[in-house]
Design a protein around this nucleic acid. Structure first.
Lengths: 343, 343
DNA sequence: GAAGATAATGCAACCGATTGCATTTAATTA
DNA sequence: TAATTAAATGCAATCGGTTGCATTATCTTC
């Protein structure tokens, strides 16, 4: 069957109850100027007739959509899916929908996404930027109109925008220090060729840890790629070609660290004996690879929840744009891939 | 700054060009009854004034949203994130947005999601159902109005709905047969307590393979849980308590298989020597665990792309609701966790 | 019970794009 | 050049809630 199946509108309800559409509209909300029993009659009748509110009419009039736009580099990573799960939970509970789009690590695509979401009139934006996003200009559509914009994980700095991050500098410092304590002195750092602050911060943490332990920073030990599995394998190849062989690897994410670790192992290197390996993110694979991977854990789901709830509070005018940065806790998770001396 | 920041409408453009809003509206599309140069003038002026179409007004009038609703059990699994990545790619390219929600494996939540998405007037729905969804009644809102509804991966059967699946029966049959060929005779099957067809099909495949190889089906070897990591560990405990010890495990997903495998290993069982273990999904962890996990690979991204493109073709009236089921290819990926005899 | 205050409801304009039909303009033909 | 046809544009209603203001019903108070 198909048929036109007339939608029920407030006009239908109004007619059925001999009321005006205006009263019905107000009754459906909790407008103070509506008598309790009238309100009840309206709600009952609405339920009885199977009324469903037409969001467009409402959105058109109120110029709000109860929709949040999300832009992420890629959807297909475990970490990101957990973050989004957290966002969805909070948003859904608060009556918001999520529209999600991927930038595929391209600033150009990111720009397109921004435009699309703007046209969809999302009430606010949650963004984790692409590797090559170095400026904010493509967000002007939102910034100029003061439509709330919140960055998470991979952030850009702007006075109007809240950022939700972890202390990447400190975390990287801790990882590197840990490697050094375990006896590593020539530590390779596998990172991203990115213009964003996240990877720069991790690099800074790595360098500072070296410096604080009187180890020289060696440019040639920094391998910048795209942190994919493939990049991990390539990093391993590069490492194996180095002489003398490094004795530590700190990769800026886990999937890359794991593929690097496995490639090294396959080449006959003992982990952590000859080379200790550490990652970042606490991806499920880190617990499975042998030896288990030392990594940095940080709460993805919480990050998503926090991003969404911060945005929603601002949208609901419960909070201004005062807070600029929220730093989530992180923790170094030490596992066998770096553990040479048992405590 | 905030200010009202007057939005540009087609009325503004019309006024600026001394045209009627109707002409502008048509000019912005490619309506045949608009002169080429008029159209160009309109487009130029629109660009110049920074016009952005108001979707609500348009949606309200056309009763279409160019938005697709997606309901999945959980967002935070690798497989699902890959599927959604595929959907987003196709949808975005075709000018559609995705609104995503999670059922958290609960039919009740699923029902709420359906209602929300209905209210958001999505043009169609892509659904992978929760474990405990056994009926279709909560989709009636869509079915009654013939709003396209497509199931993927975890599907329910309905004449109006296309389903996109793999041949779960066959895949499970292949896995089980493979285990038998490798010498297993007492094979545990770890599955979900689910009302859906997917897991029932896999169980059927498992049973048929046993039968075809003259092995008795033993109810007590079927462990139904929720296929979580925890369930895998529990399954391992149950297995270790069995006497005689089983010599094969076929888990209906990888993360469960992996945690089971690791727990068995930790208990001193040799894999695949004493117990061969196989999973399902080809999750990244399956390539990392040692020994690498034998599993079934099937194309998540393609599944997502196909679900989205099928839906969109139907929405754009390029295609009727003729095809009922699309079966994607799958393949048995044999790895060391089951390999006893080298060929 | 009338006057004034308060609560409850209704009126009607609006949000901005779309579209059937009418009208104007341009092109073609006689 | 007038008449006919085709092409281009405009008019005005419509989609379904929302909301400022006006109106009516109800309640106080003297």
């Amino acid at each position: 069957m198909s048929g036109p199946h007339k939608e029920i509108t407030i006009y239908d309800i109004a007619e059925a109850l001999s009321l005006s559409p205006a009263t019905v509209s107000r009754g459906l909300k909790d407008h103070p100027a509506i008598r309790k029993d009238t309100r009840k009659r309206i709600l009952d009748k609405a339920r009885e007739m199977g009324y469903q509110q037409n969001m467009f009419a409402s959105n058109l009039r109120r110029a709000r959509t109860n929709t949040i736009g999300v832009i992420v580099p890629r959807l297909n990573s475990y970490f990101m899916s957990v973050v989004i799960a957290g966002m969805e939970k909070v948003a859904n509970a608060a009556g918001y929908n999520l529209i999600i789009s991927q930038s595929a690590e391209s600033m150009k695509k990111e720009e397109t996404n921004v435009r699309t979401l703007y046209n969809s009139r999302v009430d606010g934006l949650l963004v984790s930027v692409a590797y090559d996003s170095d400026s904010l200009s493509h967000f002007n559509l939102f910034l100029d109109k003061s439509i709330p914009l919140i960055f998470f994980d991979r952030v850009l700095d702007h006075p109007q925008c809240t950022s939700i991050v972890i202390d990447n500098y400190k975390a990287a410092y801790e990882v590197t220090t840990h490697l050094i304590r375990q006896g590593s002195t020539r530590i390779v750092h596998v990172t991203a060729q990115s213009k964003g602050a996240v990877y720069a911060d991790r690099l800074r943490g790595y360098r500072q840890a070296l410096r604080d332990n009187d180890l020289a920073f060696d440019e040639s030990l920094v391998l910048a790629g795209n942190l994919s599995e493939q990049a991990g394998a390539e990093a391993a190849r590069a490492i194996l070609a180095m002489s003398p062989l490094p004795d530590g690897v700190f990769s800026a994410n886990d999937s890359c660290a794991v593929s690097c670790l496995r490639a090294l192992k396959q080449a006959g290197i003992s982990i952590p004996g000859q080379i200790a390996v550490a990652g970042f993110n606490n991806d499920p694979v880190s617990k499975v690879v042998e030896p288990n991977l030392t990594t940095v854990n940080y709460p993805g789901e919480e990050m998503g929840e926090l991003a969404a709830s911060t945005l929603i509070r601002r949208l609901d005018r419960l909070e201004g744009a005062s807070l600029n940065t929220i730093v989530l806790r992180h923790e170094l998770v030490v596992r066998d891939s770096t553990l040479r001396k048992k405590p």
